[in-house]
């Protein structure tokens, strides 16, 4: 599961209010996503390309439980977020929505704007001729991520249970 795109560098403590501003929360994800990160990078939403990767500092996703924060990034085609640490709530939300989030100690040392590719299965990132290793995503969460997030994962599970119920033992 590899992508290729360019890197967007961000700092520490990027919060959910800047990822999904409250004033747009009453709207659908399309509208919210078009304002993603605008207080920091006004051009981000209009220029980010599918496959691009966010490389950030510590505690990415601090703040609210609003899952529109990772959802907006996913909607814009962001392939993965790399950071030395994530806010716990954001981390759970991102995986639930099928957005790969990778704990990468070396993230702050990676330069902006480089072309890069990420393989979340193996936790490997290639950028600027270097390879970086990320902490592996726990197995059961990886399974959910492969299904595209918690909703399709549950859908699959419930469908399997229903099939079992229909078959007499």
């Amino acid at each position: 599961m590899s992508n290729s795109g360019r890197i967007w560098k961000l700092g520490d403590n990027i919060d959910t209010d800047v990822l999904a501003p409250g004033r747009y929360m009453k709207f659908g994800i399309e509208e919210i996503a078009s304002h993603c990160l605008e207080a920091l990078l006004p051009d981000f939403a209009s220029t980010v390309q599918p496959g691009d990767v966010i490389v950030a500092g510590r505690n990415f996703g601090a703040g609210s439980s609003r899952e529109q924060a990772p959802q907006a990034l996913k909607h814009l085609g962001v392939a993965a977020v790399l950071a030395p640490s994530f806010a716990g709530l954001f981390y759970r939300n991102a995986l639930n929505l099928g957005l790969p989030v990778l704990v990468c100690e070396a993230a702050p040392t990676i330069a902006d704007n480089l072309p890069c590719s990420v393989d979340f299965e193996t936790g490997t990132v290639k950028a600027g001729g270097q390879t970086y290793r990320c902490e592996p995503i726990p197995g059961f969460l990886l399974a959910m991520l492969r299904d595209g997030g918690l909703l399709p994962h549950l859908e699959k599970k419930l469908a399997a249970e229903r099939t079992l119920e229909r078959k007499p033992a």
């Binding site: 939300n93 639930n96 549950l154």
Partner: peptide, 15 residues
């Protein structure tokens, strides 16, 4: 008690 997002809440509400 801890906070979770809406999709995770769906998981709780169903299971």
């Amino acid at each position: 008690m801890f906070g979770i997002g809406a999709t995770e809440m769906l998981g709780v509400v169903v299971t």
